[in-house]
Design a binder for these strands. Sequence first.
DNA 1: TGTAAACTAGACACTATTGTCTAAAACGTC
DNA 2: GACGTTTTAGACAATAGTGTCTAGTTTACA
Lengths: 233, 233
Amino acid sequence: MKNRDDLPIKATGHTQRGQCSKRISILDAAANVFCREGFSGASIDEIAVEACVSRQTIYNHYREKETLFTAVVEDVMDRANAMLYSILATFPDKSDNLEDDLTAFAIRLTKNCLCNQDGKFLRKLVQSEGERYPHLFEAWRQHGPGKISTALGALFARLCYKGALQIDDFDLAARQFLALVNADLQMITLFGETPTSEQLESAARNAVHTFLRAYAKPAGETTSRTPTLAAVS
Amino acid sequence: MKNRDDLPIKATGHTQRGQCSKRISILDAAANVFCREGFSGASIDEIAVEACVSRQTIYNHYREKETLFTAVVEDVMDRANAMLYSILATFPDKSDNLEDDLTAFAIRLTKNCLCNQDGKFLRKLVQSEGERYPHLFEAWRQHGPGKISTALGALFARLCYKGALQIDDFDLAARQFLALVNADLQMITLFGETPTSEQLESAARNAVHTFLRAYAKPAGETTSRTPTLAAVS
DNA sequence: TGTAAACTAGACACTATTGTCTAAAACGTC
DNA sequence: GACGTTTTAGACAATAGTGTCTAGTTTACA
């Protein structure tokens, strides 16, 4: 709903190298509108206005609405995946101060991946259009949440090897870690709101605290609390 | 997409008391179509066909599309809330065999509330239309997930009092219990699929096992593992 | 069997949207 | 400054959807 006069700060118009900047502002605007209105609720005209671009330009770049939609989804997915792996790379690898380190990691993860604009977009769009475009989100399913548990599980395994944790099933622990981090945030994100820093921090602290209650290796012991219950099938 | 010849088993047409059965089949069909297509993607004609009802009948009962939508949402919310509280009433109140009892409870909860048709509908619709109709879903926010943590928290408090658990913050524990139960199911439900019984059982077992690792009171002890870390703000 | 209500099918006006086309304008580059 | 490309604004047909209206049919019920 931006007026075409108040050019946004981020290069929109004729200042940047023209060819590329149009595509970018179209993708950005389309992501916003698709996220806000859903696929069928979004109109090309609305996207054109929000991108400060004529409607015809959109049709020049992306043949039709559906092409634009898939381009937007792929663009967001790429960005989200890149961000996700860059955050995963900051997983703590030493085991002193584990609670603080894990909490800080959880905050980074939620702030930059789960609760940012791209995360919100993907959550909404997968939920509302996932059944209609199964092939489109298959990549996300595979490389996004599908891989994140495995990748995170491997990182937990490393911590485990260093003796800090006691985990039977690494992937399960990773899924539960993510679930716990989300426990306090779901209600907020479900309504499209963005959690405050305080909420993110509190959620992360609660999650890590409980996670460590379940999975931390007791101080001096080597065999400890019911570790033989052979989790999972 | 039902043909009007193969009258569904559930009373649709002229057999039941006519006045009410039309409303019901309209609400049912509308719920399906809204859930499948979203608000703007759903067309009245499509709903009419799926309800085996003429379009005019829909306009007779519900003045316009938006009225129908709110009626559908309220209908589903009422049903979902009733089911939720009836399941909450089956929360285990004795502490022997706690792991099995909690697991069975978690299965009941997921099967009948979180993963059934109404649960899917609410998740999708809150996500896609929640921002557009904040007033409409406010009731759900309050009485649905808002209350469930509190109610479940109180039930955990009872178990705690009986000496089975050791919990600092009951509401937080309740949120985490729900989050853990969902940990293995999110990927499935996110794409609109319905988990199998095996998946529900496995998810519940994993969740309860970890939950008890974090919150079970160690067998003989009275003061135990780091209980003084004063959870939560 | 008769009456009032509910329902149906179809036509209808109106609006919104998609996607195409065209001529003019702006732009980058040499 | 000239050239080719990109962009723009607007008109345009085609389609789909909403909501209204009407005339005829079916239903419920007494």
